[in-house]
Design a protein around this nucleic acid. Structure first.
Length: 335
DNA sequence: ATGTGAG
DNA sequence: ACTCACATA
């Protein structure tokens, strides 16, 4: 679900150029595996996306940063015919189609998809019959392929949230649990369940200590025993990725759980609530105000541009206050 | 160590 | 952009 790319909106005067360039970029990344061409198309799309007025010719475009001979010719072709031969060919290319299908499986990216294609694989069904060259992650992705394509209704996430809280807080009632992502932004459906957990005794000065922290593994074990988690994609000290299910009447859902230090909880919540675009704008604003903001901390920037010590944060609002940015409720962070 | 992949 | 987990070497 989160593997699909979103196009540029029609309000942009050059949105149609941007979109064909982005599509060419994806093709170079996923099928040709030519990352230089990928970057070139991305860059061209970005400059065109910034440009305030409608481009009327390839020559006009050529003056812009990142647009040379080849792309300016494509703009001329698009202006003349309303389409691109190269893109038409790509749309009818069976190789492109196969790779686009194979990369929908979680754990299969462009590199693995191409190697599978070269081994003769074309469809999910063929992969399901011969899964031996796949990693554990990819096999699970295949197992729940149909379910993972489905959106999760808000109400179902609310029920999952209830069960997560009950089960985790019965290990230790001091655990704090927040489901972030588009769910926290109030959306009526989401692609996965993105969960953040913290505990007052788990602070960043205790992270990076040599003794392994068993907290997350204990939690995952309890959720698995309770049959809420039914498969694990990956599990480390701070991050779990896997599959969960309310009961056999419901589809299997993607569940991510992160354990974050108590003193970094609000920066994490802010970050994982998104949206991506909102995060970018907020970070840019932070820099203008002389701060740097990431997934973990808010830090002042010295005159040399070197970040200082993290600022103490006790709520999400704190972060907005420090960088003098008007507070936005999660529901208002969709753009 | 390096590459891949997810988010 | 950056980090985490994994597989392979």
């Amino acid at each position: 679900m989160s593997k699909r790319k979103n196009p540029v909106g029609e309000e942009n005067p050059n949105y149609d150029f941007c979109n064909f360039l982005l599509e060419l970029a994806e093709y170079e990344k996923n099928v040709s595996r030519n990352m230089h061409k990928f970057s070139a198309y991305k860059k061209a799309a970005a400059t065109l996306g910034e440009h305030p007025t409608r481009i009327k010719s390839g020559d006009e475009a050529r003056k812009l940063k990142g647009i040379g001979d080849k792309i300016s010719k494509k703009i001329d072709e698009f202006l003349a015919t309303g389409k691109l031969k190269k893109l038409e060919n790509i749309h009818n290319d069976p190789k492109t189609e196969a790779i686009n299908i194979l990369t929908k499986v979680t754990g299969i990216g462009p590199a693995k998809a191409l190697s599978l294609y070269n081994q003769g694989f074309r469809t999910i069904e063929e992969l399901q019959k011969n899964p031996e060259s796949l990693t554990h992650h990819q096999k699970i992705g295949l197992k729940y392929y149909e379910d993972f394509e489905k959106k999760i209704p808000r109400q179902e996430i609310q029920e999952i949230e209830k069960r997560l809280k009950d089960l985790i807080q019965s290990i230790d009632s001091l655990y704090k649990i927040t489901i972030c992502g588009s769910y926290r932004r109030g959306k009526s459906e989401s692609g996965d369940v993105d969960t953040l957990i913290t505990h007052p005794n788990w602070t960043s000065d205790k992270v990076n200590k040599k003794d392994k922290n068993p907290m997350l593994k204990k939690i995952i074990n309890a959720l698995t025993v309770a049959d809420l988690i039914i498969d694990t994609l990956s599990l480390g000290e701070t991050k779990f990725m896997g599959a969960c299910r309310l009961d056999s009447e419901h589809p299997v859902r993607r569940l991510d759980i992160r354990l974050t230090p108590y003193d970094q909880y609000y920066c994490s919540i802010l970050y994982f609530t998104g949206s991506d675009v909102f995060n970018k704008t907020m970070r840019a604003h932070a820099v203008e105000q002389g701060f740097t903001l990431n997934e973990y901390t808010l830090r002042p920037l010295g005159s040399t541009g070197v970040p200082g010590e993290p600022i103490e944060i006790t709520s999400e609002e704190d972060i907005f206050d420090f960088i003098d940015y008007p507070y936005k409720k999660p529901e208002d962070r969709n753009a």
